[in-house]
């Protein structure tokens, strides 16, 4: 009884808006719930750094880098170091700190060098991070 009177007084638009709200809420819960169940976010971050491009920047050079987090755990304050070397001797070192690299995400940045990175060996690696 009460239900039928409620249905009669409720405008169609309200059913649509509430239905849409329900769907959005369920999507939210579904995605976060899957994350909670897999427990992936507790894993340690695994960050790979790769160079995407090199360009002349003023009197020096810039190397575009990408930090890819292969794990589900988020890393904050990720220190990235790039070393230019000739054989065993390091020619130049540059570094950058990335604010956040969330799980399974990619963040980009760049490193500046005085020497041309294309004429040396460039080694890129993540040094460390903070748990957010």
């Amino acid at each position: 009884m009460a239900k039928s009177t409620m249905a009669a007084r409720t405008p169609l638009l309200e059913w649509i808006a509430s239905g849409l709200g329900l769907v959005l809420l369920l999507v939210l819960i579904g995605v976060i719930g899957r994350e909670a169940l897999t427990g992936e976010t507790d894993a340690l971050p695994a960050i790979e750094i790769r160079a995407t491009s090199v360009a002349k920047a003023g009197s020096g050079y810039v190397v575009g880098i990408e930090a890819v987090n292969l794990s589900g755990g988020t890393a904050a304050s990720v220190e990235v170091e790039g070393v230019l070397s000739d054989g065993a001797a390091a020619v130049e070192t540059s570094s950058v700190t990335l604010d956040y690299v969330p799980g399974h995400s990619t963040r980009s940045g760049g490193l500046f060098f005085r020497e041309d990175p294309r004429r040396h060996t460039l080694q890129l690696r993540a040094l460390g991070f903070q748990t957010p």
Binding site: M6, A17, S18, G19, V23, L24
Partner: peptide, 19 residues
């Protein structure tokens, strides 16, 4: 007037907030 309507309102409000 009823709890059912309150739930509908809350769902719609949540939907509006998400969008």
């Amino acid at each position: 007037d009823t709890l059912g309507e309150d739930i509908l309102d809350a769902l719609a409000g949540y939907g509006v907030g998400i969008i």
